[in-house]
Each structure stands twice: as structure tokens, then as C-alpha cells.
């Protein structure tokens, strides 16, 4: 089938070259040197640590806020028009990333950003003198949340729909409090979906390049690979393949976890 030929040419072979290249010396011989260099260079180890940390932080915070927002939108009593508005906006925001997102936040919270100036001129709060900077770990995390929260809303909304009203009614008929309902029914049913979605968010952030490349300030693995392609920092092409190999290991692990969790999650979905 032409599909498989295409996928082989532009996906399988290029990925294979990266995997094989990670284990090749300059002379084309098999070696563990590249991986060993990555593991023994503090700069690269730190980059992996930072990448994993920022992905964990934005997955957990983004996951929690996304869940709360999605739930707030479908709750009994919330006006009906909120939900379609929220999901449509989430569709846009989850796709609105990279260059324009980075610039939008620079225009908002950068040195001369609108909000930075507003706080300084009217409230006398100088963010940057108080230690805040957009070009730091937490700054980048704040920007990443702009696509992480919407992704959570999109992924988790069907699972929240899966919570049937009958369960809630049955439990309150049996005298359970709202807390007891969540403790024994709502939370356990949602848990696998929430875990799965959070893993997805982790991978989403881990692979992100464009947004962080414009903000700077944090050295993430994709950024180092990008600099390496640009050719200014490192000269060994096999090193960037070794870094890419490391990224693939992390993402593949999270994908395996996701599949396992997803199997549990589908139990309650119709």
C-alpha cells in the first residue's frame, strides 16, 4: 500500500537513522560512547532533569486545573452555553502554541509587557524586581499551561460525561454525603482517565520545542537538540541523535504507561 511506503520513507527510516545513529561512532562503528557522553555530561543530565520537571509540573497543575474547569462547566447549575464555549476555546488554545503563544506572553508579562507595566504603574508592584521573570522555569511553565489546561479539558470531558447521574442519585438516596460520593464513587471511576490524560500532558510538554525556543532561559533537551542542528554549539551529530534517543525512551515509556492506564479507563466508558 502506498501509505506504508510513504510512512517508511518519511517516518520509519528517518526515526531508524536517529536510533541507529545514537549508537554509531564518527567512523560508523557500533559504540555506546555517545550515550555515555550524554549520561556523563552535567549539562545534558540537567537538561533531561529540567525537561522532565517542567513536564511533570505542567502536567500535574494543568491536569488539575483542566479537570476543575471541565467539571465546573458541566456541573448541574452551570448555564448550558458555557460548555460548548469552553470546549471550542480549548480546541483553539490547545492548537495555539509555539511562536505566537510565546510572543503573546512576552507582550503580557515580558519586561515591557502590558500587565507588567500595569502592575508597576498603578499598583507599584515591579514583578521583575520581585524575582519573577517570564524567561525562567516557572515563566515557561506558566506559558505551557496555556496549552496544557485546554488539552486536559478536551481529553477529560468525555470521562466526566461518563459519570452517570444515576450513581449520584443512588448514593444520595442511600444517605451518602457529597464528600462520600466523591471519595467512593466519583474519584475512583475518574482516576484512570485522569492519570491517562496527565501522562498525555506530560508527553505533550516534553516534546515541545517552539514555545521554549522563543522564551529562552531554560535549557530543555529539545532546545539543545535544536541548537545542535543550528550548528553553533556542538559539532558531533551523533550526540544530538543520542539526545533524541533519550527523548524517545522517555516518551515511549510514558506511552506504554498511558496504554496500560487507558485500558482501565475504558471500563466505565460507554
Amino acid at each position: 500500500m502506498p501509505f506504508f511506503a510513504y510512512a517508511t520513507a518519511f517516518l520509519l527510516l528517518p526515526s531508524g537513522v536517529v536510533l541507529v545513529g545514537a549508537f554509531k561512532s564518527d567512523k560508523g562503528k557500533f559504540t555506546f560512547d555517545n550515550l555515555s557522553t550524554v549520561v556523563h555530561t552535567p549539562e545534558y543530565v540537567r537538561a533531561f532533569k529540567t525537561s522532565i520537571e517542567i513536564s511533570l509540573v505542567t502536567a500535574i497543575i494543568g491536569g488539575t486545573l483542566g479537570l476543575l474547569l471541565a467539571y465546573a462547566a458541566v456541573r448541574n447549575g452551570t448555564p448550558r452555553w458555557i460548555r460548548p464555549l469552553l470546549t471550542t476555546f480549548s480546541g483553539v488554545a490547545a492548537n495555539f502554541a509555539g511562536i505566537p503563544l510565546a510572543f503573546a506572553f512576552i507582550a503580557t508579562l515580558g519586561f515591557t509587557g502590558i500587565v507588567t507595566k500595569l502592575l508597576n504603574d498603578h499598583l507599584g508592584v515591579n514583578l521583575y524586581r520581585h524575582g519573577f521573570t517570564l524567561f525562567s522555569f516557572w515563566g515557561v511553565a506558566l506559558v505551557y499551561l496555556y496549552f496544557q489546561i485546554p488539552l486536559m479539558i478536551l481529553v477529560i470531558a468525555p470521562a466526566i460525561d461518563g459519570l452517570r447521574t444515576e450513581w449520584r442519585e443512588a448514593s444520595s438516596n442511600l444517605g451518602a454525603s457529597s464528600f462520600q460520593y466523591w471519595r467512593h464513587i466519583g474519584f475512583p471511576v475518574l482516576l484512570p482517565s485522569v492519570l491517562g490524560a496527565t501522562i498525555l500532558l506530560f508527553g505533550n510538554s516534553f516534546a515541545a520545542y517552539a514555545t521554549a525556543s522563543q522564551l529562552g532561559g531554560v535549557s530543555l533537551v529539545p532546545i539543545i537538540i535544536g541548537q545542535n542542528i543550528g550548528g553553533d554549539v556542538l559539532s558531533n551529530p551523533h550526540l544530538s541523535q543520542a539526545l533524541a534517543f533519550g527523548m524517545i525512551i522517555v516518551i515511549a515509556t510514558s506511552m506504554v504507561l498511558y496504554t496500560l492506564v487507558q485500558r482501565r479507563a475504558s471500563k466505565w466508558m460507554k
Binding site: 536517529v18 508527553g203 516534546a207 520545542y209 524517545i248
Partner: peptide
């Protein structure tokens, strides 16, 4: 195949494409 592009994100795909087609 449809999951693979998530495991091999753009930043890695571009490394592979450049390496494969220009090396």
C-alpha cells in the same frame, strides 16, 4: 503508525529527516 508521530515528535523527526536525506 498513527501513534508513532507522538513518540517521534517534530524536533526528533527533523533530526532524522535531515540526517537521512542529507547524509
Amino acid at each position: 503508525m498513527t501513534i508513532l508521530p507522538f513518540v517521534v515528535p517534530p524536533i526528533i523527526l527533523v533530526v532524522g529527516l535531515l540526517k537521512f536525506y542529507n547524509g
